[in-house]
Simulated scan of single mutants.
Amino acid sequence: MVVTSTVPAELSPALGSALDLAGRTVVITGANSGIGAAVALGLGRMGMNVVGVARRTDKLEAVGLAAKEQGSTFLAVGADVTDEDQLAAAMDRTVETFGGIDCVVANAGIAAVQPALDMPAEDFRSVLDVNISGVFLTARTAARRMTGGGTMVLTSSSFAKRGFNDWAPYNASKAAVSMLAQTLTQEWVAKGIRVNAIAPTATLTDVNRALFENPDFSAGVVAGIPSGRIMQTEELVLPVAFLLSPRNQMMIGQTLFVDGGQAL
């Protein structure tokens, strides 16, 4: 697998410095593809030390190679976000390598798309396990090691506010992620840890590309987005950086909708 960075060149260490992110260390789950890979490359270009975490290490290594080619610092660590021991090992390796954890992007997620009456219970539980338990465990294992405080962004979705047919477990899990951000930040803000969520609209990735190449499916999705188009993964880099920035001390427990107006 070859990863080509499409991250705008404007995302420079100077911008990272302006946001007080350059030189800091960020752990990103689900960094092997899609939104996670784009955010990893973008934050790396802004001068952050990026630790990419994913189960599929072959794809993760490809993202790491793209990061190296653009001059960024990237450490690939294999881990399943539903396994707390594996996550703990990933966080410990991050601390050993970079001296600490400043930021976290809990991005790993999956979907099962099927009418609710037909969906196997096992598929429903699997989505909740990754999208809710995985996010919670990622946040908690990192928080235990963020002794000097830090910031977190949890990946929610515009679907958290406006449910869509056949996406029951995904819709429910993303709504839960937004509430999780509110709850965790209330518990941890006194420790200097701020937690927010980001809620993107339908975003073009390698995983869903075949779906969006279906004109009927694509037209149906775009019809519900006032901006009139599907989002590109690199468009999420700056919103995530904004939420991670230590300069936003009063922004806590919020869900930032980056959705072209879909949730209005």
Rank of each mutant, 00 (worst) to 15 (best):
V3R: 04
V3Y: 15
T4W: 15
T4R: 15
L11M: 12
S12A: 10
A14W: 03
L15D: 03
G16Y: 00
A18Q: 14
G23F: 11
V26Y: 02
T29W: 02
G30F: 01
G30C: 06
N32E: 11
N32W: 00
G34V: 03
I35E: 02
G36L: 04
A40P: 12
G44K: 03
G47K: 02
M48D: 03
N49S: 10
V51C: 09
A54R: 02
R56V: 13
D58T: 12
L60S: 05
E61R: 12
G64A: 07
L65C: 11
E69H: 11
Q70I: 14
G71Q: 07
S72G: 10
F74N: 01
L75S: 03
L75P: 01
V77P: 00
V77G: 00
G78K: 07
A79S: 07
D80R: 09
T82I: 13
E84I: 12
D85I: 14
Q86H: 04
Q86T: 06
L87H: 03
M91A: 07
D92C: 06
E96I: 09
G99M: 13
G99C: 08
G100A: 09
I101T: 04
V105E: 01
A106I: 04
A111F: 12
A111I: 13
A111G: 09
A112F: 13
A112N: 05
V113G: 00
V113S: 03
L117I: 13
D118E: 15
D123Q: 15
D123H: 11
S126C: 05
V127D: 00
L128P: 00
L128K: 02
D129C: 06
D129Q: 13
V130L: 05
I132V: 15
I132W: 04
A139H: 04
R140W: 12
T141E: 12
R144W: 08
G149L: 07
G150Q: 02
G150H: 01
L154C: 09
L154V: 05
T155G: 03
N165A: 15
W167H: 14
W167R: 11
A168K: 01
P169Q: 01
P169E: 05
Y170P: 01
N171H: 08
S173F: 07
S173L: 08
K174G: 03
A175C: 10
E187L: 06
W188G: 05
R194N: 11
V195E: 06
A197D: 08
A197N: 08
I198Y: 02
I198V: 14
P200Q: 08
N208P: 05
A210Y: 08
F212S: 03
P215M: 09
S218H: 10
G220K: 09
V222W: 00
I230V: 08
V240N: 01
A241Y: 00
Q249L: 14
Q249M: 14
G253C: 10
Q254H: 13
T255Y: 02
G261K: 01
